[in-house]
Structures are given as structure tokens and as C-alpha cells.
């Protein structure tokens, strides 16, 4: 089987999944939609982590761009009076890409644990700036008003469903684009870079450029995730840029595995479901339950949840 047909099939599956998710919004109880929305928005950030993970780089500071996305939405809608969801998404994306384009020049020089730690330090600096900003509510953050869509303001009752469909649409689009990217030459070379950067250099390709591009790309999707989270919860605060938030993204990335574009979505939803039920049934020991479940998954499925799906199917060409 050639790589191309596999990808086409995946794309069709993604389209179907997107449509199915959107349709489910009408029947499912809203709390479930809300959980899904947050999980998918988070999964977008995780996609960014995974893009870099395929290159062998682990970012413990993806919260930087998650936070930039969220605050771009918050500031634009609260202080500049912009309420259009698409403009806000574009702003979040632009802000993150601009920051990443500069920081990426530095970051692309780092590997291994140092990449992880420097990315963590950078996100914590943003966290510090936000905590210091009393005009932005410091650690309390501030609320984000409801969005409009190309001039259309949904009735209060519809607002939730529209936001849900928007999230699904954005997530579906990004998933499709990522899927195309992973199948492209640049996407496929990533694993070679992870295995041996110098050999890739000898082949006449520039791993550093690839790392830079991935860094910027990861920043972009993380900002979209941050913006969608801000839409869904209607609130932003510095916690978005905190190291523990970034750590959670890495956690989910490893939970899903890097094998497939759908893996982060699956992992993120599973993570949210496990956590919310641990909260409900064992409010005093939910961390214990969560830790045990995650440990079990790592120990028994070190390649992530996706290995369950993959091993059952054919070995990929």
C-alpha cells in the first residue's frame, strides 16, 4: 500500500469524524459538548507538541502560545471591542506566529532536555508578566464576552451550539491540514531528523530550518487552541501559561502517541473523561486515580493509545 492512499483514507475519515462530532452537538447533553470542546481545543495544542516530538524535541512551554492565543482573544474583545470570532482567531494566530518567528531563531539551536527547559523558562516569563499585570486582573484574569460570527450574533440560546460547531470546524480543518503536512516531504523527513540530524544535513536538507518551521507551526495551532478555550470558558488567566499546563499537554501527547494525527484528539478526550469522573467519584483522591490510569497506559502501551488502533490494523507501509 502506498503512503498516498492511506492518507487519502485518513482524510476521508477525518471529514466523517468532523461531521459526526458536529451532528452529535445537537443530541448530546451540553456538558458533554463542553467537555469535548475543551478537550479538542487542548488537543490542538497537543498537536503542536506532537509536531515537535516527531523531530525529537519536547516542548515544556507550549503554554506560552496557548496563553498568547487566549490573551489575544481576551484583550482584543475586551479592550478593542472586537467580537468577531474569525477575526479573533486570526489575531490569536498572528500574535503567536509573530512571537514564535522571533523566539524560534533562538529555540532552533537547542535539543533534548535543553529545548524542553528553555521553552519552559520562556513560558514562565510570560506567566510572570501576566501575574504582574494588574490591569489584566493579575492571576484572577478576566472574562471574555460572547462572540459574533461575520456580523451575525446568535441568540443567547444558540450561542453554545454555534461555539461548539465552530470549535469542531476549526479543529477539523487543522486536523486535515496537519494530515496533509504529515504526508508531505517535510513531514516525513521529521523522523529522520529525530533519528540522526547530521545524516539529514549530509543529504542536503536543513534540519534547523525544519525545526524552526515546526516551532512556528506548533505555536500557531497552540494559539488557536488557546483562542477556542477562551471562547468556550469565557475567561482567561495566567494559568494558561503556567508550566503545569504545558506539562499536561506533553502528558496527553505521550498518552496518544505520535503515530497518527487522530491520536492527540483521542488521548485528550480520554484524559478529560477520566479526570472528570475521577473528580466526581473520588473528589478527595482524583489525582491518585488519574496517576494510576496514566501510569498503566504508559507501562502497558509505551507507544501511546494509538498503538491499540494501529496494531489491530495492517502494519503501515
Amino acid at each position: 500500500m502506498s503512503a498516498k492512499t492511506t492518507i487519502d483514507k485518513t482524510q476521508v475519515a477525518l471529514l466523517i469524524a468532523t461531521a459526526a462530532f458536529a451532528a452529535a452537538g445537537v443530541i448530546a447533553p451540553y456538558w458533554l459538548c463542553f467537555l469535548t470542546m475543551l478537550a479538542l481545543a487542548k488537543a490542538l495544542v497537543v498537536q503542536g507538541v506532537v509536531i515537535q516530538m516527531r523531530l525529537g524535541l519536547v516542548s515544556f512551554g507550549q503554554g506560552l502560545f496557548f496563553g498568547i492565543g487566549g490573551y489575544a482573544v481576551g484583550i482584543a474583545s475586551n479592550f478593542w471591542g472586537i467580537s468577531d470570532a474569525f477575526v479573533l482567531l486570526a489575531l490569536a494566530l498572528a500574535a503567536a506566529v509573530a512571537v514564535a518567528a522571533v523566539l524560534g531563531l533562538l529555540m532552533a539551536r537547542y535539543r533534548d532536555i535543553f529545548f524542553a527547559m528553555l521553552s519552559l523558562a520562556l513560558s514562565m516569563i510570560l506567566f510572570g508578566v501576566l501575574v504582574k499585570s494588574q490591569g489584566l486582573g493579575s492571576t484572577d484574569g478576566f472574562n471574555v464576552p460572547a462572540q459574533s460570527y461575520l456580523g451575525w450574533v446568535p441568540a443567547p440560546g444558540q450561542q453554545k451550539l454555534v461555539a461548539y460547531v465552530l470549535t469542531i470546524a476549526v479543529v477539523g480543518t487543522v486536523a486535515l491540514l496537519l494530515c496533509r503536512y504529515l504526508g508531505s516531504g517535510a513531514g516525513q523527513i521529521a523522523e529522520a531528523v529525530r533519528e540522526n540530524e547530521i545524516r539529514v544535513e549530509y543529504l542536503g536538507l536543513s534540519p534547523r530550518w525544519l525545526i524552526y518551521a515546526s516551532y512556528v507551526m506548533a505555536a500557531g495551532v497552540a494559539a488557536l487552541g488557546g483562542a477556542l478555550t477562551a471562547f468556550a470558558t469565557g475567561h482567561v488567566d495566567p494559568e494558561m501559561a503556567y508550566w503545569a499546563t504545558s506539562g499536561e499537554f506533553v502528558f496527553i501527547a505521550l498518552l496518544g502517541g505520535t503515530a497518527h494525527v487522530a491520536a492527540p484528539f483521542l488521548a485528550s478526550i480520554l484524559f478529560s473523561v477520566v479526570r472528570t469522573y475521577a473528580f466526581e467519584y473520588t473528589p478527595h483522591t482524583w489525582q491518585l486515580i488519574l496517576g494510576l490510569v496514566l501510569l498503566a497506559i504508559i507501562v502497558f502501551l509505551p507507544k501511546g493509545l494509538w498503538s491499540l488502533v494501529q496494531r489491530e490494523g495492517k502494519v503501515r507501509a
Binding site: T229, G234, E239, T245, T276, F279
Partner: peptide
């Protein structure tokens, strides 16, 4: 768990 988590849990 932070505000995002709490908004989610309040809805739940």
C-alpha cells in the same frame, strides 16, 4: 485545577 477546569466542572 484552574479556572478552565472549574468552569467545566461547574457545568458538570
Amino acid at each position: 485545577g484552574g479556572t478552565t477546569k472549574q468552569v467545566e466542572e461547574y457545568r458538570n
